[in-house]
Structures are given as C-alpha cells and as structure tokens.
Design a protein around this nucleic acid. Sequence first.
DNA 1: GCCGTTTTCGGCCCGACTGTTTTCAGTCG
Length: 584
Amino acid sequence: MPDPTNAQIAAALDELGDLYELDGAIVHRVVAYREGARAVRDASVSVAGLAREGRAIELPGIGKTLQEKIVTLIDTGAIPSAQRLREKFPAGLVDIVHAVPGMGPKRVRALYDGLGIDSIEALEAATAAHEVRKLRGFGAKAEETIAAALAAAAERGPEGQRRTILSRALAIGEPIAAALRDHPAADRVELAGSARRLADSVKDLDLIATANDPLALARALHEIPAVQSVGTVSEAGARGVTHTGLKIDLKIVAPDQFGNLLQHFTGSKAHNMQLREAAVRRGLHVSEYGVLDDETGETLRCPTEEAVYERLGYAWIPPELREGRGELEASARGALPPLIDTADIRGDLHSHTTASDGKATLEEMARAALVRGYEYLAVTDHSATHGFGNEVSPGDLRRHMERVRALDARLDGIRLLAGSEVNVLPDGSLDYDDDLLAQLDWVVASVHTSFRIGEAAMTERMVRATEHPLVDAIGHPTGRKIERRDSYPVDIGAVIEAAARTGTMLEINAAPDRRDLDDVQARAAAQAGVRILVNSDAHSTGNFELMRWGVATARRAWLTAGDVANTRPWAAFDALRKRKPAPA
DNA sequence: GCCGTTTTCGGCCCGACTGTTTTCAGTCG
C-alpha cells in the first residue's frame, strides 16, 4: 500500500478535529488538529516519510501525539481514536457542520442529543415539523434561520459552494476598484483578501477604501455596471453582489487606520493569527483597528501596512507570501526572498499553433512572442494521441519542424524551438519514436488521458517519462483544474525527486484554471533543486498574457528569478537544458 | 494538543454579530 499523501494525512487530521469538536473537546485541542492538518498540507516534503523517521515533529504544530497518530495511519490505514469517534457520531453530523452556515459543532451536537437529528435530511424534517424550537437553547427565530440556511444550501447545490478562480475574480474586481478609485469622493481604494494574495480562487471580494465623502463613495458602488445589487449603505461602506454572483464588501475607513484594515483584511487567517500570537508575546495586541501596547495602554493607528509591520518588528511582507508558511520569521530575519516578476520572464517553452489546437498560426505566435520581448519561444503542438483531435502525425511533425526552422531563420530577435507537447501513454512511454523526438529541439511531456490508473501506476508512468533522456520538461504535472477537478492521484514527491535527479524541468503551467504545479508543490520542487519553468501554454497570441497567473503561483511558492529557468537569457537557458543543445 | 525572552505547566488572536439560556455562548471571518 502506498504511503498516504500529505493531502490525505491532512484530511485525516481535519476529520479528527471535527470529531473531537463534536465530542466536546476544549477548543484549543481542536485547533491543534486543524493547525497540524495545515502544517501537513503545506509541507514541502512527504510527511509520511518524515513521520516514519520520527521527524514530523519538526513541522510547526506537529508534536509527539500527532507524530504517533500519523505513523499509526501509515502503518494501519486508520487512526483508532477516529474510528471510535466515527462510531459515536454519524457522518451526517459533520455534514451539517460543513454544509449549513450557522450550524457549528455545539448546536449540531445539541440537536443530535436532544432530537436524534443525524443528517441534513433529518434536520430539514425537524425544522418543517417545528421540533427544533422546542429544544432548550433554540427558539422560533433559530428554527427559521436554520430552515433558511438549509433552503439556501439546497438552492445553491454543490455547485454554489464553488469559489471563483482568481483570473475571473480579478477581471471583475480590478475594474470595480479602478472605478471606485476614479470617483471624486475616493482617496484610496485597494483590493484585499485572497484576491490580493493572488490565491488560486476567491470566495468574495474585499475592498478597503478611504474617502473625503464616505457616504458618496459607498453609494457609488451601486453605479458600477458589474454590480447587480447593493445592500445596506453607510459611511462605513457597502455590501453588494456582482452579476456573476460574487459578493463584494466595501469597507471605508479613516485614513489613519487604512494600514491596519488593509493588513487585517488581506489575511490570510493563518498569517494574522501568527502575527498576533507573536505580538502578544511582546505585550502588543493587533486588531483591524490598531496595535495596542499593554504598557502604555495606547493604540497605534497606522495609515500604511508598512507601519503595521514595522511596529511589530517586521519588514513589509508581499501579500502572496502571507499564508503562515514561515514568512514572519523570514521577514524578522530580513530574509524574505526577492520574488520573481513577470518582467523577469525571457521565454516561453509551451505554446500551441494551428498545427494542433491553437487559434493562431506559427508566424502569428512567433511575432506576438517577439513583440512581448521574449528571446525564445518553444512551439509545442500536441502529439499524436492527446485525445482532443487536431493531432500531429509523425509526418506532419517533420514538416512542422521544417516550417519552424525556416521561420526561425528569417525572424530576427527571437529563437524558435521546434518542439512538441508529447502525450505520456499509460505505461510511461511517449507517443513519438525516440528517433523523431531526437530531431526536436524541445520536448514537454504531459499526461492528457487515462487519469484513473491509480496512484502507483500514475507515479511510475510520470517518473518513467521524467527519466526519458529526450524529455526536457514535464507539463502541468498534476492535471488539476482549479475548482473543477482534483489532481490525478500521483506521488508528486517522487516526480520531484526524479526531476531533480535527471535534470528534467517541471512546469508551472500558467493557464489560470491550472496553475500546475501549485504553490506548495513548486516550492518543494525548487527546494529539491528542480529547475522550474513558468509557461503560458498559449493557444492564441493573447494567451501569452496568461503568464501573469503562473508568475503569481511562482511568487506564492517563494520563487526568485534565479529559481525559474526561463528568466535566463538564451545562452544561459540553453546551458541548463537536459538535452544537448541542438546543432546551430 | 502544542509550546517556551512566562521553558515541562498553564496558557493558547481578535472582534462582530446573533439569539436566547437574560448575561453570554456559539458562530463566523
């Protein structure tokens, strides 16, 4: 049996936290399980491997007990205390806590003990029969609130729980922020929250503003075409919903507290908790309203974020790093990495043309890359069996290579690589012969089919492709689609190890619904010594702009320009390649 | 359950909102 992945271990610890919470454990114990789960999820190496060596306790938030429970999970496939609690509490109780807003573990437990409510369906029946209001601690109002929450959850369905991917959220949120900024009543307007941290997806948009006429600015939200409706409006701000269903929360604050509010609402929750815990140890209390000093009893209000961090002994931290993954310690030490920027990118090693499923011709793509200032572009149309039509037969590929090289010869200022995005077959072999692959300048190997072959087989498949001497890089290594599809089961740690060992590059695919590798995986790969690529996977000339989302993930992975291979000038990039440079 | 410039016990981030048990617990972000 393969080791559980970090995600699986984290899920087990989260479940244990949920169960202990239902069991009435003190909140700090529950929080400890959640923190442990987060530490495992964010770990850059296999936690199963660490635990086996007794080293999981090196992760912040993992102590002796959790270390032992993880080992038991690895050895037996289960944690005994979880099994015992599962027998005590039906799974429906956890379902209610997760699915019904306002229903936490305490109230769910009360309904279970008092009325035997053990599922969402049973809760619906009990509210309809007005049984809930009879229970001590609940009233008519509570029953109505629960019924409304249940109806809303049913209305939304599982789809409604989805978060909005970052590119869509910013396409809506950035123009809204700009429109508010242009309003005569506005002074400052900034997007906060996970949108500002450039997370994979966002739940809602938080806007923090200062204004010379707060009420006028709050009213202005309603005038923006993207905004469908606005609720209560006051000098403190307004709440609204866009036509796409994205919630907007505009908060208008005094200029001398703008820094406190922006810092607070940028988050993340984990970052803010760590920030405050560290502050408490030094007699300071941080909230969205200021920094309270125990000694003087005075609250420092900060007009800028820089002032907040400075008061607490930190250099300003880029929002992309504020995930509680060591950024506070690094900031205090003056050791924050100089993060990569989109302007650092000098070439794109994954693009498509009309030869396969791209929308633009070879020449259009090459000229667009040149205009963008790139020094090199790999043209990597799909191979024979990628599964979506437009396949390039071996004969087609030979002719395509000739066209790429002919264009390269007559186009100054950019080097074109005749490449291919070669499909990795289920057994790990590639769907062109080695003879043909050897004639190419660049090969990206990607999995596009047969996702459900199981973790062991998928890992073997990808490691084999990674070890192939003619594979320069692995494309979108996990196959995830943000908010739509999980990664196929694969031991990405084994792929990272193989890539580091063989000098194969791993891609951060910049397509906004992919961003694959993700931030945690890319950080782990870079730490393991893997050369990272950030590639647009452009299928049109406009798609080169997608590089932005890949760079966002690279920044969230703590990557510098030096960690990313395609920030190099051509000669330096060429020297990093696994395959011998093509003859000139 | 974790953790230590309060080191092996006794704490553990902060504030808003809601409704009910009427003085505060539960939930959320």
